[in-house]
Design a protein around this nucleic acid. Structure first.
Length: 319
DNA sequence: GGTCATGCCAATTGTAATTA
DNA sequence: TAATTACAATTGGCATGACC
């Protein structure tokens, strides 16, 4: 009998567990094995510690494995998780109402044009203070009633700086409050700016407003979708016209440690189920960068008409 | 994987110019 | 004046690519 076995027996005795022979089914040892796998690395050292509730001592003489079989409950399979030091449920921002949070940041910038030329998007012009760059993070791509937005980021020019506001929800029930809060940022003069928002974000929000029995504030507004002008202009030159390609090529922005958009649904749902907030915070960072880049790309596109006119006059001069 | 704006191409339609 | 031709504009179908 090893020293470890003796100590284990002493602990069992201390917890009030009656000594018994090996389990006839073999499932109890299997559980012991999986528990060992979850907590030990190849060298036998503890790989991670999880926050645990006080363990309830099984009542003496009760075969838990047999009870599980009777109830049809499966053994828990341990899943690899992030180490404890990154485990936090803290979320940033101010709580506006239960489950609804607001993040607000301001970014100094060189003076943007007072009047934006939107001919690149086959539109007229828009005043700077009417622009609202927006982007949503959602629970998937499928569309329809099953997909909801859990985060709405919006950037506008305010007091000489780019103001970025992000609404996000930490409970399903807070969605209506988020939609109402977003409505308050919009008025009939608002000009929406997005990337593929005409096909994705706007229809999705329209569905969510309809389901919440709220008026859709986006309905009837001028909407500048930057995807299509970018495609028209650069499809021959770039490998693709994704937003991150546009910001890399035009704004010289290369994202580091960016959470891919496809990971956003998992990050939010994982938080909802009691997981860490680490990836949810990364989703917020991703969304923040998206709306900031939208403003940069719009300024870039605003200059195209002038650039093209200059290029044309130079070409004429050379003739 | 669903949706939708856009681009591309071909077919169709409308209009103006030309000819017998 | 009617028939023919050429060109422009419109329409419809299909493919593409971007969003999370």
């Amino acid at each position: 009998m090893s020293d470890l076995a003796a100590r284990l027996r002493a602990l069992r005795k201390q917890a009030g567990i009656r000594e018994s022979g090996p389990s006839p089914t073999g499932s109890a040892p299997a559980r012991s094995r999986s528990a060992a796998d979850a907590s030990s690395g190849p060298s036998g050292q503890t790989a991670r510690r999880e926050p645990t509730l006080p363990a309830k001592a099984p009542r003496p003489g009760i075969d838990l494995a047999a009870l599980r079989r009777m109830a049809g409950v499966r053994e828990r399979v341990s899943q690899p998780r992030a180490p404890l030091r990154s485990y936090t449920r803290d979320v940033p921002g101010d709580e506006l109402s239960p489950g609804l949070r607001l993040l607000e940041q301001r970014f100094a910038s060189s003076e943007p044009p007072a009047e934006f030329d939107l001919t690149f998007a086959r539109l007229a012009t828009a005043r700077r203070e009417h622009l609202l760059h927006f982007d949503t993070e959602t629970t998937g791509l499928a569309g329809g009633t099953g997909t909801r937005a859990f985060m709405i980021g919006a950037a506008d020019w305010h007091d000489g700086a780019l103001r970025v506001r992000q609404l996000y929800i930490t409970t399903m029930a807070a969605e209506t409050a988020m939609l109402k809060a977003f409505s308050e940022w919009i008025d009939p003069h608002t000009v929406l700016v997005s990337y593929n928002g005409k096909s994705y974000d706007a229809p999705l929000l329209a569905t969510r407003y309809r389901l919440a029995r709220l008026a859709n504030p986006l309905s009837g507004l001028t909407h500048v979708d930057l995807l299509h002008p970018m495609r028209r202009r650069y499809r021959q030159d770039w490998e693709n016209c994704k937003m991150q390609t546009a910001e890399r090529r035009l704004l010289r922005i290369v994202r580091e440690d960016d959470l891919p958009g496809s990971e956003a649904p998992r990050a939010w749902l994982s938080y909802l189920r009691g997981g860490a907030s680490t990836d949810l915070v990364r989703v917020a960072d991703h969304n923040l960068q998206d709306v900031r880049s939208l403003s940069g790309l719009l300024i870039e596109a605003h200059g195209w008409a002038e650039k093209d006119a200059l290029a044309a006059s130079l070409a004429d001069y050379k003739k």
